[in-house]
């Protein structure tokens, strides 16, 4: 019985791993459908809670599958679900990266790398914008993010954790202050 549910985790998450283009957000809806409606591993309310936790915790948002695995089969379920989601895409990435580096130095490779670099930069900028949009960020978020970026530009050696703590303190203080 227990083996069956572990196998089911693998059967559900491995395909998701290989279609999760653009990362976790692209497969959340599909995972919700499988975990809640089809397999009934978690209730709809539990899924929302799991989603919020995976956003609040460090790590990629797709760690929400870890919690689904946990609900299904405890520690073993959590490990199986996490590996099922991360290993297949990683193996693929490894293979592509290997091929990518084998041809380093060729003219077309240099052109490809130079051509892709600005796209990578554009995607990062787009990511900044979309994270703010998802978070429904207000003025304070922009101010904290801008200040953190400014401090880093002036003093690159400042530890990120210090900035995180500062940002957390500013928000906590703002929340405690009556408007």
């Amino acid at each position: 019985m227990r083996n069956d549910s572990l196998l089911a985790l693998v059967a559900v998450f491995v395909p998701f791993s290989l279609v999760s283009i653009g990362g976790g957000p692209s497969i959340f809806a599909g995972i919700q459908h499988q975990a809640v409606d089809v397999r009934q591993w978690v209730s709809a309310r539990e899924f929302v809670e799991i989603f919020a936790i995976s956003r609040a915790a460090p790590g990629p948002g797709s760690m929400l599958v870890t919690l689904i695995g946990w609900k299904v089969g405890g520690w073993l379920g959590a490990i199986v679900a996490t590996l099922a989601l991360f290993v297949p895409s990683s193996v693929l990435c490894y293979g592509v990266g290997l091929a990518w580096n084998r041809y380093r130095g060729r003219i077309w490779h240099t052109a490809l790398e130079r051509g892709l670099a600005p796209i990578g930069a554009g995607l990062i900028l787009a990511g900044v914008l979309s994270i703010f949009q998802i978070a429904g960020a207000g003025f304070l978020s922009w101010a904290v993010a801008g200040a953190a970026a400014g401090i880093l530009a002036l003093r690159p050696s400042v530890h990120p954790l210090l900035l995180f703590a500062g940002g957390g303190a500013v928000f906590a203080a703002a929340a405690m202050t009556p408007a």
């Binding site: 978070a135 904290v144 880093l152 530009a153 990120p160 940002g167 957390g168 928000f171």
Partner: peptide
């Protein structure tokens, strides 16, 4: 939320 905002600052930089 504040920690997340500072993290976005890192990304912005």
């Amino acid at each position: 939320d504040g920690v997340a905002a500072a993290a976005i600052g890192l990304l912005l930089r």
